[in-house]
Amino acid sequence: MEGTRSGRGRERGGRQSTTDRDTRETMLEPNPEPQIDPNAQVAAAIQRMTDLLAHVVQQQGHNPNPPVGNPRNPENYVESEDRALERFQKFFPSKFLGGPDPDMAEQWLEKMIDIFAALHYSEERQVTFTLFQLEGATRSWWNIIRTKWEREQTPRTWVNFVREFNAKYFPPLIQEKKEDEFIRLRQGTQSVVEYES
């Protein structure tokens, strides 16, 4: 029985001492730290990682996908906008300010056509990148055309852009003049028409 009593006594004493110790610790530390839920910690860490990844994607130009396919086979190659713009700019395309000289407009447009022939870009991308080169009066002209296209739901294609560009910078009178000049050209002693036949 003694063993039983001493066991009970220890048990009671153990309870009392634990309670006393908790009371003393509470008195020593008036603001004990609250227990943090491990699930909340994991959720907070995941949220921080998500925010960080979103920031990285934003810094990369909103297109985290690398190019797909083989760049030597343009039909199956999808290139990011940033990379495509970088390649376009390596050709040092000139800016176009407009003006009354149709020869300047013609030279600029031919240069753009040559660049896009080398790059094999889609028609919409060609128009988008060409717009980076328009400044001053031509930028204002484009804003009018863009509004018209949106209203009429005109597709943003290279063919449509060239048509609008030619209508603005090569009016019919200038086109006729260029045709006349071409017809009057001579190859040696022959006219172009004679040379062609």
Rank of each mutant, 00 (worst) to 15 (best):
Y121K: 10
L97P: 06
P100Y: 06
L52F: 07
K95I: 01
E110W: 13
P93I: 08
D114E: 10
K95N: 08
A105P: 15
E106G: 08
Q107P: 02
G99T: 11
P66F: 04
Q35S: 12
F116V: 01
D82S: 07
F92E: 13
Q41C: 07
A44H: 05
L85E: 11
K95V: 04
A105K: 14
V57A: 10
D51T: 09
S80V: 04
A43G: 04
E81T: 06
P74H: 03
F96C: 10
T50K: 15
Q41T: 10
D51C: 01
P93T: 10
N39K: 15
Q59I: 10
P66I: 09
D37P: 07
D103C: 03
V57I: 14
D51K: 12
A44L: 08
R48T: 09
P100E: 04
M104S: 11
F88M: 01
Q60L: 13
W108K: 03
H62F: 12
G98F: 05
R83C: 12
P64C: 04
P66N: 06
M49Y: 05
E86R: 06
G69M: 09
I36Y: 02
M112A: 11
F92N: 14
S94K: 02
I113Q: 00
L52W: 01
P74E: 01
Q47T: 15
V78A: 14
D103I: 09
L119T: 08
V68G: 00
N65Q: 15
M112G: 02
Q60D: 06
F88S: 02
Q35E: 11
I113M: 01
F96R: 11
N65C: 11
F91S: 02
I113E: 00
G98K: 05
S80K: 08
G99W: 07
K111H: 08
Q47H: 15
R87Y: 05
A45Q: 10
A118K: 00
V57G: 06
V42G: 00
K90W: 01
D51W: 00
G69W: 13
A44Q: 06
A105M: 14
A40F: 10
L109H: 02
H55M: 07
H62Q: 12
I113L: 00
E75M: 03
A105Q: 15
M49Q: 13
A105F: 12
N73A: 04
R83V: 15
Q89Y: 10
N65S: 14
N63L: 04
T50N: 14
V56G: 04
K111Q: 11
Q107I: 12
E86A: 11
P71M: 02
L53F: 14
D101G: 05
F116E: 01
V42H: 03
L52E: 02
E110L: 15
N65F: 13
L97Q: 14
Y77N: 07
L53T: 13
A117R: 13
E110Y: 13
K95G: 03
Q41K: 12
I36V: 14
A117I: 05
F92C: 13
F92H: 14
G69K: 05
D82F: 11
A44S: 09
Y77M: 08
N63T: 07
P102Q: 06
V42I: 03
R83S: 14
L52R: 06
A54L: 10
Q58K: 08
F116A: 00
F91L: 00
